[in-house]
């Protein structure tokens, strides 16, 4: 299995007629993803055509979901309208909204997050690469690709990957695939300070997924989400976990004032997060090149096979 999405998951694309949305809709169709609808207000009734696929476009998420049975939306709409696009998914009762859009005002996300609290729809992102559950075809085709990640570097397997950063996720995926292993699902939760699904949320899902045998947790400086996830792992997760934190050398003092340091607490530096990882039994990758090897070391210590 996998988490959140399977190769059978039906997805719709909000912003399918924009250049960026269109390009990635094409790549997802090529990957074999069940991309069944597009949404662009005012363009309902048209079709998105690519390589023999003819995807209907609707004016609203409600209409698209009702007509096609799509349960997941991927959002490519421009920043000023992205918050609204997320709320529309929630109102339509989708299972999952994945917001790729980068540059949404923080205030918009504060309001959106408050408005969707307690609702059925899970949000991933914004400012994230999305998620991939690899398929069994050549270059992992036949899987479910939601967002902008390169599908071909994946391979169906048993490693779960969760990260805030896109390119670092790809590094980890590529390393795992290069070792002949594969991924259950790779999830990019996005780098914005206010986002939907957290590291911990994804870790819990991986922990419950019988098909995930090991986990790579990739974090960054700032906030305390990685620390929260690590503490939970220490108490609850039996699976081998490797971790990496980016930003050890990022320049401090690029911000004015110091209130951020107080609210962030003492645990938002790379060194502090790495120390918590170690204390919680997470095998730390010393460099990004070491991520897959770190997981192999963690698996060996627990006597777990990742293949």
């Amino acid at each position: 299995m996998s988490i959140l999405i399977t190769p059978a998951t039906k997805i719709l694309v909000q912003g399918i007629t924009g250049a960026f949305g269109a390009k990635h809709a094409q790549l997802s169709l090529d990957y074999g993803t069940q991309l069944v609808a597009g949404v662009t207000p005012g363009k309902g009734g048209q079709f998105f055509e690519h390589a023999g696929h003819k995807v209907p476009i609707f004016n609203s998420v409600h209409e698209a979901a009702a007509a096609t049975g799509a349960t997941v939306s991927v959002i490519f709409v421009p920043p000023p309208f992205a918050g609204d696009a997320i709320l529309e998914c929630v109102d339509a009762g989708l299972d999952l909204a994945v917001c790729i859009t980068e540059g949404i005002p923080i205030k918009d996300m504060i309001r959106v997050k408050r408005a969707i609290a307690g609702k059925k729809t899970r949000l991933i992102g914004p400012n994230c690469p999305g998620l991939v559950t690899p398929g069994t075809g050549e270059g992992s085709k036949g899987g479910c690709r939601i967002g902008i990640a390169p599908g071909y570097i994946h391979k169906k397997g048993h490693v779960g990957i969760v990260s805030r950063s896109g390119t670092l996720t790809y590094e980890a995926v590529f390393q795992i695939t290069s070792k002949g292993l594969g991924q259950s699902t790779s999830v990019g939760i996005g780098g914005d300070p206010v986002n939907g699904t957290s590291h911990l949320d994804v870790i819990k899902l991986f922990n419950e997924d019988p098909d995930t045998k090991g986990i790579i947790l990739i974090g960054e400086i700032g906030g305390s989400a990685e620390v929260e996830a690590a503490r939970w792992i220490k108490d609850n997760c039996k699976k081998p976990v490797a971790g990496f934190i980016a930003g050890a050398t990022a320049p401090a003092g690029r911000r004015m004032g110091h209130a951020g340091a107080i609210v962030g607490g003492a645990e938002d530096t790379a060194a502090a997060k790495i120390a918590v990882f170690q204390e919680c039994g997470i095998e730390v990758a010393a460099t990004p090149t070491d991520m897959a090897d770190a997981l192999l070391r963690a698996a060996q210590k627990k006597g777990v096979s990742l293949s």
């Binding site: 950063s165 390119t167 590094e171 780098g191 990496f244 980016a246 050890a248 990022a250």
Partner: peptide, 15 residues
Amino acid sequence: NGAGLAMSTMDIIKH
């Protein structure tokens, strides 16, 4: 390319 990779490129140089 990519902010996370750019940050960790700085880290690895320092490493």
